[in-house]
Amino acid sequence: MSYIFFFKKSNTKYMKILIEKIIYEKNLTVRQVSMMSGVPKSTVQKLMDENSNPTLATLEKLAAGLKCKISDLYESDYK
């Protein structure tokens, strides 16, 4: 598994996952995103939480299913 972490001094800094925004913009449900990407519905829902750190493989599946770039899925100071 590959994980993406961003660190700020001694505190872990989580990247902001923009999946909720994308779901809203594309007028999709969590179930539809799950079916399109192959990512379990429970995982998609967890990614909508602010403190999530998805694997690179999960981001790749979501990007492929949503037909967007991986970088469109998150917000980061290091992007």
Rank of each mutant, 00 (worst) to 15 (best):
N11V: 10
F6H: 14
S34W: 02
L73A: 00
S10W: 08
K79I: 15
S37R: 00
L47C: 07
L66Q: 01
K79V: 14
K61N: 07
K13Q: 15
N51T: 08
K79W: 06
S34H: 05
S76L: 10
K79L: 14
S37A: 12
T12D: 11
A63W: 01
V30L: 07
S2A: 12
E20V: 00
S42Y: 08
K21A: 04
A57P: 04
G38V: 05
A57Y: 11
L59A: 04
N11L: 11
K21P: 01
K46M: 10
S37D: 06
I22E: 03
F6R: 15
E75V: 02
S42T: 12
N11A: 10
M35E: 15
K26Q: 14
E20I: 00
Y78L: 14
S34G: 10
L56K: 10
K61A: 07
Y74S: 04
F6P: 13
K46C: 07
P40D: 10
E75G: 05
S37Q: 04
D72F: 00
S2P: 07
E75F: 01
Q32K: 13
Y24I: 06
S76Y: 06
Q32A: 10
S52V: 07
L47A: 05
I19R: 00
A63G: 03
S37P: 01
Q32N: 13
E75L: 04
A57N: 11
A63T: 00
D49P: 03
L59F: 01
V30P: 01
T58Q: 02
Y74D: 05
K16G: 12
A57T: 12
E20T: 04
N27C: 10
N53I: 13
E75S: 09
Y74K: 03
F7I: 11
G65N: 05
K16C: 10
C68N: 00
L56P: 08
T29E: 06
M48N: 10
G65E: 05
E60H: 04
V33C: 07
I17N: 04
F6D: 15
F5P: 07
L18C: 12
M1K: 08
L28G: 06
L73S: 00
E25Y: 06
T29G: 08
S10C: 09
M15K: 10
Q45Y: 11
L47R: 01
A57H: 09
K21N: 07
K46S: 13
F5T: 14
P54N: 07
E25R: 08
S76A: 14
S42E: 09
I4V: 09
R31V: 08
K13S: 12
I17K: 03
K69C: 02
T12R: 11
L18H: 03
K41D: 13
Q32D: 15
L28A: 08
S2F: 09
N51P: 00
G65W: 03
K46D: 12
Y78T: 09
N53L: 13
R31E: 14
K46G: 06
E60S: 07
E20D: 11
N27H: 10
V33P: 02
L62P: 00
D49V: 02
I4F: 06
N51S: 09
M48C: 08
S52C: 11
E50T: 08
K21E: 08
A64M: 12
V44K: 01
Q45I: 09
E60R: 02
I23Y: 02
L66R: 00
K41H: 14
M1T: 15
E50H: 07
I22W: 01
L18I: 07
T12I: 13
I4P: 01
P54Y: 03
V39Y: 03
M15Y: 09
T12G: 10
